[in-house]
Amino acid sequence: ITGDVSAANKDAIRKQMDAAASKGDVETYRKLKAKLKGIR
């Protein structure tokens, strides 16, 4: 179950990262990237 949750989280975070990148929001992008590392 835990694996599914983190996989879903990663997917959601990647989508947020894409949105931040397209807006040029480097700050948010970095925060999300750090979150991704924390999940692993």
Rank of each mutant, 00 (worst) to 15 (best):
I1Q: 11
T2V: 12
G3F: 09
G3D: 10
D4S: 13
D4H: 13
D4K: 07
D4T: 11
D4A: 11
D4L: 09
V5P: 11
V5S: 12
V5M: 12
S6R: 08
S6D: 12
S6A: 07
S6N: 08
A7Y: 10
A7S: 12
A7E: 11
A7R: 10
A8F: 12
A8L: 12
A8H: 13
A8N: 10
A8S: 11
N9H: 13
N9T: 14
N9G: 09
K10W: 15
K10M: 14
K10Q: 12
K10A: 15
D11S: 09
D11I: 06
A12N: 07
A12S: 10
A12W: 13
A12R: 06
I13R: 00
I13A: 00
R14V: 06
R14P: 02
R14W: 07
K15V: 07
K15P: 01
Q16F: 05
Q16K: 06
Q16V: 02
Q16A: 14
M17W: 01
D18H: 13
D18A: 15
D18R: 14
D18I: 15
D18F: 15
D18T: 11
A19E: 14
A19T: 06
A20V: 02
A20N: 00
A20T: 00
A20K: 01
A21N: 05
A21Q: 08
A21F: 14
A21H: 07
S22N: 07
K23L: 07
K23W: 01
K23E: 08
K23P: 00
G24W: 03
G24I: 03
D25H: 01
V26D: 06
V26A: 05
V26W: 15
V26Y: 15
E27G: 01
E27L: 05
T28G: 05
Y29L: 09
Y29T: 02
Y29A: 02
Y29R: 01
R30Y: 07
R30Q: 12
R30V: 06
K31R: 09
K31D: 05
K31M: 08
K31L: 05
K31E: 08
L32M: 04
L32W: 02
K33W: 09
K33E: 14
A34P: 01
A34L: 08
A34I: 06
K35Q: 13
K35D: 04
L36S: 01
L36K: 02
L36R: 03
L36P: 00
L36E: 02
L36F: 02
L36C: 01
K37Q: 13
K37H: 13
K37G: 06
K37A: 14
G38R: 12
G38Y: 09
G38L: 11
I39V: 07
I39T: 05
R40F: 14
R40Q: 15
R40H: 14
R40P: 09
